[in-house]
Design a protein around this nucleic acid. Structure first.
Lengths: 177, 177
DNA sequence: CAACAATTGTTGTCGTCAACAACAATCTTT
DNA sequence: AAAGATTGTTGTTGACGACAACAATTGTTG
């Protein structure tokens, strides 16, 4: 029940629209003289990195969620499992810090993953405050599948913006990783 | 003189996003054998565009909010005002569609902007369902200031990732704008 | 060693945001 | 005119970031 209320129709709001710029339609579809669906000048907005990044991020997350909908894994869950899988024994604090998420938020994420028997919290012997995080056996095989699906998602990204552009993007944003 | 009105809290809690990657040294920082704060391998995560984009988007939004904190304008509010300013008379539906936000969400955004006397909803004569959106006189002068601050924010982005990289990024993501 | 400070996991609150559903008023179509 | 679609609105759900407070535990210091 992690209630994934989203996705559903999915293929509806794809951004692949790309206003062909130059078509007028019903004489009066709204309030003003701007009648058309597309072709509304963004002007200044076009030069803002934040706007483009936001739109892209929405697209990319939606594609990720859709591509991994069969296994019901969201981007954040995937990142948590990936980090734990690559660094078994990490504390919650360490994972939170590494991924840039609140440790308070990680609690719920781990609750969910632990309920699904993908991750286990093992009490640390050396520091009884903290938990050592590990993937379960089931979690390890599951993660392998998640990674295959995630790779498919990455291919979608490459198709969308171009392979070279994707790599250039990764390179530009490497500092944030 | 445009402003005054309300800036409220605004400059309150700056995490100031710039952890100097400090050194810490507790002998045993967690549950596992990974003792350092950094140096946790992300491995697979490094190759995922979505992760990098998410981190970058968080950074860029925080900088935008901080840079425009004096005028208390958030990215979405800015985008709404920019579109209305460049296309006066648009309906709410048209703005929502253009910016990719829910029309339900736009209602609250406009409520807020209208209360601050930056935007006005004018009942359309031709279609009594819809509202023609316009900037108020105050909104127009305010937007001019917002744009100056937004330009400053863009300079921050350029400093962060490099001027050429910023432009390359805008070019790569132009399809999403 | 004992008092004090810091850390870890946890719970809870608040605000932003995307996705939906339902509704009244108002076009549009048939 | 009746049926269907659109527009603005209200409300709900869930993911998420930012904070605050707390108990248990560890570390630090006088």
């Amino acid at each position: 029940m992690t209630g994934n209320a989203q996705l559903s129709k999915a293929t509806k709001s794809r951004t692949d629209a790309r206003p062909p710029r130059g078509r007028k339609r019903s004489a009066n579809s709204g309030a003003g003289q701007h009648a058309l669906d597309d072709e509304i000048g963004l002007d200044a907005l076009a030069g803002h990195a934040g706007y483009a990044v936001r739109r892209f991020q929405i697209w990319i997350f939606q594609d990720f969620i859709r591509t991994l909908s069969a296994v019901d894994i969201r981007p954040t869950q995937y990142s948590v499992m990936t980090v734990i899988g690559a660094n078994p024994g990490l504390s919650q604090m360490a994972v939170a810090k590494r991924l840039g998420i609140e440790r308070a938020r990680l609690v719920h994420l781990l609750d969910s993953l632990e309920q699904r028997d993908l991750v286990s919290r093992i009490k640390s012997a050396t520091d009884r405050r903290s938990h050592a995080l590990h993937l379960t056996a089931r979690g390890r095989t599951a993660l392998a599948q998640f990674k295959r699906l995630a790779a498919e998602h990455e291919r979608h990204v490459a198709e969308k913006i171009g392979k070279g552009n994707r790599e250039k993007l990764l390179q530009i944003l490497a500092a944030f990783t």
